[in-house]
Design a protein around this nucleic acid. Structure first.
Length: 261
DNA sequence: ATGACCACATCTTGTGGA
């Protein structure tokens, strides 16, 4: 049985619940991952999404960060926070198993640290977080499951994923050390779902609110669906819901989705 | 045009985002 999974950095779920709910109603993804909820769990608009048929798992935080997984099917085995980063005070990781049609799919919603400025404690935190994610992924891959690691990675994987690579070469999203750390994760055996389906350059998931970035198409491809070998073998197609950036009061990110069979 | 945003909380100003 085929299913669709999407991920979206919503930049505050309380500020955007109506827009997000109408997008869900139109797209009817079976599984949806959110990042940057910017609220604690008790402030999450549960009923808005339960009323349209979704189960919800939230790892919230006041003001900053916050991740969630929504699913039409039951959620179990919920993990909040990276087990390999037990002292992390920031809500950036949630994982769950989704069960339907006699199978189990493991999904993670990831909000990887930005890391700027790229030469200080925030960058050290980004690299430490990426190393912890790598260690956790290593143990997840041993299960040999259909595993989907979805989220805002704050990593531009390659020069064709940014409008002007030269101006980004020292940025925490693109510097070589960041891309090397990202590859050390994907090299464990994960497939970038978008690049498995589309080799067109300049396909973005983020446009800054500032300086007319959207109007000039000055974007970044930083939101990714990474697939285990079992998941990659089931991949049908992958796309970006670019039109969501042109809505009223948009997030600065747009959803990216994949269909698996 | 070397210009230009948005959300939140401490709330009319500072912080973080990317």
């Amino acid at each position: 049985m085929s299913f669709k999974i999407a991920t979206w950095n919503v930049n505050s779920i309380t500020a955007r619940s109506e827009l997000v709910a109408s997008w869900i109603d139109e797209t009817r993804n079976d599984i949806v991952c959110f990042q940057e909820l910017k609220c604690q769990e008790h402030k999450f608009p549960h009923s808005t999404f339960e009323d349209i048929g979704y189960n919800i798992a939230v790892h919230g935080q006041k003001t900053y960060n916050g991740v969630a997984i929504l699913s039409k099917y039951p959620l179990s085995d919920i993990v909040t926070g990276l087990p390999t980063f037990p002292d992390d005070e920031q809500a950036r990781y949630i994982e769950a198993v989704i069960s339907f049609q006699n199978e189990a799919i493991r999904v993670a919603s990831i909000y990887l640290p930005n890391g700027n400025p790229a030469d200080g404690v925030k960058y050290e935190y980004k690299l430490a977080w990426m190393n912890a994610l790598r260690n956790h992924v290593l143990s997840l891959l041993a299960f040999e499951e259909t595993l989907i690691l979805a989220g805002d990675y704050n990593v531009i994987p390659a020069p064709e994923d940014v409008y002007n690579p030269q101006t980004w070469q020292d940025d925490a999203l693109f510097k070589l050390e960041t891309r090397r750390a990202f590859r050390s994760i994907t090299n464990l055996g994960l497939r970038d779902a978008f690049r498995a389906c589309d080799d067109t350059p300049q396909q973005y998931t983020f446009w800054d609110y500032q300086a007319g970035a959207w109007q000039k198409n000055n974007g970044l491809r930083i939101d990714h669906l990474l697939l285990s070998p079992e998941a990659a073998g089931r991949l049908v197609c992958c796309g970006i819901d670019k039109n969501m950036r042109a809505q009223d009061k948009p997030s600065d990110h747009v959803p990216i989705w994949a269909e698996l069979r």
